[in-house]
Computed example of a mutant assay.
Amino acid sequence: MKSMDVDLDPKMRQFRKIWEQFIKRLVKGWETMNVISALLASAVLTILQIEGVTADPVLRTTALLALTCTLISLLYGCIYIICFPSMKAMNKAAEWAKEFRKPNTNLWNSWVMLALPSIWLSWAIVFFLV
């Protein structure tokens, strides 16, 4: 891999380094969110074992919504942790760079996709606190 770096110009080497750091930080963030999601899921499951919570429809519903959001966050986080280390290739980096530069006026874009684990975890925490 180092021999390939010699053939690249300095700007490409810098881009490659920045891209690899970006991927590494994303994966590390998702790993951290997965730990928080797992802890939150166990807390919600513990709360659901209390008799008064299961009898109250509001508490039960918010707890189940928190659990659902937590599990979705875990799912996205696991998928991203597995898939994104393969994104270190330069051709993938170029595709993502083009996608990130596109002006997006709609609600769905690459940034939203990357944020899905944190979005679902945020909703899980909101439902848990309610």
Score class of each variant (00 low, 15 high):
N109F: 07
I23S: 02
L71M: 10
S86M: 08
I125V: 15
S118N: 10
E20W: 01
L48R: 14
L39R: 00
M87I: 01
T54Q: 15
L74S: 10
A94R: 15
G29C: 05
V130M: 07
D56F: 03
S122T: 15
I81R: 09
L26D: 08
L59R: 14
P57N: 14
Y76F: 15
A89R: 15
T70D: 04
D7P: 02
T32I: 13
F84E: 01
Q21E: 11
N104T: 13
P85E: 04
T32L: 08
W111N: 07
I125C: 05
M4F: 03
C78T: 15
L59F: 09
F100L: 13
Y80L: 06
A89V: 09
S42A: 15
I119A: 01
A41R: 03
L121V: 03
T68D: 01
R60E: 04
I119C: 01
W111E: 06
K102Q: 11
V126N: 02
V6F: 05
L114E: 08
V44S: 04
P85M: 05
L64P: 00
M4Y: 09
T54N: 13
L71H: 02
I125L: 09
G77C: 01
K24L: 06
N91T: 11
A124M: 07
P103C: 05
A38E: 02
L39H: 00
E51T: 11
M113D: 09
I82A: 07
I18V: 11
W108P: 00
I47S: 05
G52D: 12
F22Y: 12
T61Q: 09
K98M: 05
Y80D: 04
I81H: 01
I47D: 08
V126P: 02
F22L: 12
S73R: 11
F127P: 00
A43G: 03
E95C: 04
S110A: 13
Q49R: 14
T105H: 10
W96L: 12
R13F: 00
S42G: 06
A94F: 07
P103W: 15
E99K: 15
L8E: 10
T62E: 06
L26T: 10
S37Y: 00
F84K: 10
K17E: 13
L59T: 03
P10Q: 15
I82Y: 12
L114Y: 14
Q14E: 10
E20F: 00
L59Q: 14
S37C: 09
W96S: 07
S37E: 01
T54E: 07
L107F: 13
V53K: 08
